[in-house]
């Protein structure tokens, strides 16, 4: 059941981003729900698992988009790994810590996307619209991070996402 939910979350996140959140975008930008799930998973499970989960979630997003397959996989994989390294340095009970890791994760992922995009193809010209999209996305992610972190953390502690026992 736990694995099914872990697979289901990015699937449903892409669906929501392409429909619901497009209708309620913040200055034309949508939040990166897939990244939020990757960040929380990595923060609670550590670097190696975080990297694998991030890579697979990013790959799913890439396969849906059908172009530049691997950009999201690599950027989310690396983000998952780095956020996973933070696990031992922070107490993960606090919602503010959840907010902080989402902020770090979003900035990191945006920078990685820009570097990968800029170095492998010329579509991602770094201009004002890309920078502003990254800023608005960070804000939107932060806004959603609070309720999602509470639900995710509770589920991780004693719900369906609990590692030790199936509920």
């Amino acid at each position: 059941m736990r694995y099914f939910i872990l697979c289901f979350l990015p699937f449903i996140a892409i669906f929501l981003e392409s429909t619901f959140f497009r209708a309620y975008s913040l200055f034309g930008t949508v939040p990166d729900l897939v990244l939020i799930f990757v960040v929380f998973y990595s923060f609670l499970h550590g670097d190696n698992k975080g990297a694998v989960y991030g890579f697979l979630c990013g790959l799913l997003e890439d396969l849906y988009m059908g172009r530049f397959i691997g950009v999201n996989a690599l950027s989310k994989g690396i983000t998952g790994f780095i956020i996973g390294r933070l696990q031992v340095r922070f107490f993960n009970e606090n919602v503010l810590v959840g907010l902080l890791v989402v902020l770090i994760g979003t900035v990191l992922n945006s920078v990685l996307m820009l570097v990968l995009g800029w170095s492998s193809f010329s579509v991602f010209n770094i201009d004002a619209s890309i920078i502003s999209a990254a800023i608005f996305q960070s804000l939107y992610n932060l806004l959603l991070a609070v309720p999602i972190y509470v639900l995710y953390y509770n589920s991780f502690q004693k719900g369906l996402l609990n590692v030790t026992g199936e509920k």
Partner: peptide
């Protein structure tokens, strides 16, 4: 039109 791009790059 049933959906739009799920990210801000495309």
């Amino acid at each position: 039109v049933i959906a739009r791009s799920p990210n801000n790059w495309y």
